[in-house]
Write a protein that binds this DNA or RNA. Structure first.
Length: 279
DNA sequence: ATGGCGTATGGAATACGA
């Protein structure tokens, strides 16, 4: 997580991603995060509320006036982009023909630049890592395959980020124990290969791993069920920031806010924040 | 130590997370 000084005249941009596990339950800590870290843009997953229930006023009160919402019918899933910079070309895509609110996209307008954002919540996949007996796992694999086929078209938009809870920890050092988790949904070879295919086929740079050496373990999620999550430290890196190569070359740092796991009534995921200096 | 927790809907008990 090195930092390179931005060149003179550069335009700063910071983008965060956070699986919030109910945005209404966590309005207090979301506000705290925005006020202390002050990212330009925050991509949320598992908002668990319909667009009419989204706490827009609370975000506007602290200067985040621009929002792209896809909460579907409320209840399950739900994604949103909250921004203090203007957003254009807001849209969302239904994957696997299911209509689940798992994707929202917008273009961030910053200092004459346009940066396209895709915010994803990939299906968790259930317990059994076998699509022939577990429809949830089959859905997850279908979703990843559709992402792999569709995302390359997103490159036509120029500088682009793909962020979100991708629900796969692709590398051995993205989990507390590769051996213990190799047959556990989120780290099976089938899922890891599918996510890697989506990344490689689109030419995306895994921005977190650009700043963290591959031999260093790094996580963004710790289960609620550990008595002492920090002591057990049985985490997984499920939340990702992918960038087009041009944008990746403008990245200064990626930070994982591990301390957010100890905030009051926390999410089981923590925020990941990417910082850029645009030319 | 794959659930010991947490949130959703609905108004108790069950679905889902990963």
């Amino acid at each position: 997580m090195t930092a390179v000084p931005p060149s003179a005249g550069a335009t700063a941009l910071s983008v965060a991603t956070w699986n919030i596990n109910s945005v209404r339950m966590r309005q207090g800590i979301v506000t705290r995060f925005l006020e202390t870290e002050a990212p330009d843009v925050l991509c949320l997953q598992e908002t668990k509320c319909g667009d009419g229930q989204f706490p827009t006023a609370a975000f506007r009160r602290i200067g985040y006036d621009h929002m792209a919402l896809n909460g579907g019918k409320g209840g399950w899933h739900g994604v949103a982009i909250v921004s203090r910079l203007p957003l254009a070309d807001i849209a969302n895509r239904s994957f696997c023909g299911k209509g689940d609110p798992r994707h929202v996209t917008a273009t961030v307008l910053v200092g004459g630049h346009r940066v396209r954002l895709h915010n994803f919540y990939v299906p968790a996949g259930g317990d059994e890592p076998d699509g022939t007996v577990n429809p949830k796992f089959a859905h997850k694999m279908d979703f990843l395959a559709e992402m792999a086929a569709w995302l390359p078209h997103a490159q036509a938009d120029g500088a682009t980020l793909v962020v979100g809870d991708l629900n796969v920890a692709p590398y051995e050092t993205d989990v507390w124990s590769h051996k213990a988790l190799i047959k556990v949904v989120s780290h099976t070879p089938e899922e890891c290969a599918a996510l890697e295919k989506a990344r490689i086929d689109g030419g995306w740079v895994d921005l977190t791993r650009r700043f963290v050496p591959m031999d260093e373990r790094i996580y963004t999620w710790w289960s609620y069920r550990a008595k002492d999550w920090r002591a057990a430290d049985k985490g997984r890196r499920l939340d990702h920031v992918w960038a087009t190569p041009d944008l990746a070359d403008r990245a200064l740092a990626v930070r994982i806010l591990k301390d957010a796991r100890d905030w009051p009534r926390p999410s089981d995921h923590v925020p990941v924040v990417a910082h850029f200096a645009l030319p």
